[in-house]
């Protein structure tokens, strides 16, 4: 059957497209990003304290940008971990069928809202609110960004954590109830530890989403490329820098390559997050005896 074999070949070739694109992205980022190191050393690039790409001579130190990303991501964790894990636990343990039927679509809708809408909402409502609340000169701060990123990452955390909670065998719960544990004890001492690695996977993937988020941080973080002293100061995360500056650069300039190098670092960070999440979730399935 020659035709059958032809189809098989076509499908095989197309199936490798994602691998192809992944490799393509890596190659492009390296090719376009590495030339910046002709201008500036790696350590100077990563550790340099000032980012003035358009000065003469320019400064390409991305430490403020890395710190900006780090601050808002860590801040977002303080929002998305309690909200996401709390929501997952509520859905899995407390909500009856009717509540689930309402709450799950709400979580899905929250996940579907475009980041530009979050950014816009943050800009017109949240930032002015925070400015008034804390009586600070600008409302667009690392704190504002963290808050919005946290809410954005909540559905990711909630849905993955809920999956892993639902994988916890019923027999664990029964065993715990049978020796006279109440529901909270069963939840905190048996269910959560058993789903622990699944929940960590959820948190890592939520973090990965927060690090890579662009439009929201571009609109609500204030955009100052300086090393922040507190959460209530503007920052400029890496993603925001790329989005804001790429339009103004000359193709092939050092600035252009520097932005690609930032993209490369972002890409590597999220790659590490994903690989770690993958490893943890694989171990978790082994631990619960669920096979591969």
């Amino acid at each position: 059957m020659n035709r059958e074999r032809l189809y098989r070949w076509i499908f095989t070739a197309l199936a490798f497209s994602s691998l192809f694109f992944l490799v393509g992205i890596t190659v492009v980022l390296f090719k376009e990003g590495l030339p910046v190191f002709r201008e500036v050393g790696l350590f100077e690039f990563l550790g340099g304290k000032s980012w003035y790409p358009t000065y003469e001579p320019p400064d390409f130190g991305i430490r403020p940008l890395i710190l900006g990303s780090l601050w808002v991501t860590v801040g977002a964790l303080f929002v998305c971990v309690p909200l996401g894990v709390g929501t997952a636990l509520y859905l899995n343990e407390l909500a009856g069928p009717r509540q689930r039927a309402v709450l799950k679509p709400i979580v899905e809708v929250l996940a579907g809202i475009p980041s530009i809408v979050y950014g816009f909402f943050g800009m017109v409502l949240v930032a002015p609110f925070i400015q008034d609340l804390f009586n600070i000169p600008v409302g667009q701060t690392a704190f504002t960004g963290s808050l919005l990123l946290g809410v954005m990452a909540t559905p990711t955390v909630a849905s993955i954590a809920e999956d892993s909670l639902s994988f916890v065998p019923k027999s664990f719960r029964e065993a715990s109830f049978a020796v006279g544990a109440n529901r909270w004890q069963t939840l905190t001492r048996v269910v959560i530890p058993a789903a622990g690695s699944g929940i960590s996977t959820a948190i890592i993937l939520g973090m990965s989403r927060a690090v890579g988020e662009t439009m929201t941080v571009l609109m609500v973080c204030g955009g100052a490329a300086v090393i922040p002293d507190s959460f209530f100061e503007p920052v400029r995360p890496m993603t925001a820098t790329i989005a804001a500056e790429m339009g103004e650069t000359v193709m092939g300039s050092a600035h252009y390559h520097a932005l690609f190098a930032i993209g490369l670092i972002l890409f590597l960070i999220t790659l590490v997050f994903n690989v770690v999440a993958e490893i943890i979730s694989r171990r978790y399935r082994l631990k619960l005896g669920l096979g591969r």
Partner: peptide, 25 residues
């Protein structure tokens, strides 16, 4: 108390398994 059809120890140590009931009580 109840002992189930399929042995269902928690994924914890032997000691922790037995101590669990004492702790929660």
């Amino acid at each position: 108390g109840m002992v189930f059809q399929k042995p269902n120890p928690f994924p914890k140590s032997i000691f922790e398994n037995v101590a669990y009931g004492l702790e929660v009580n």
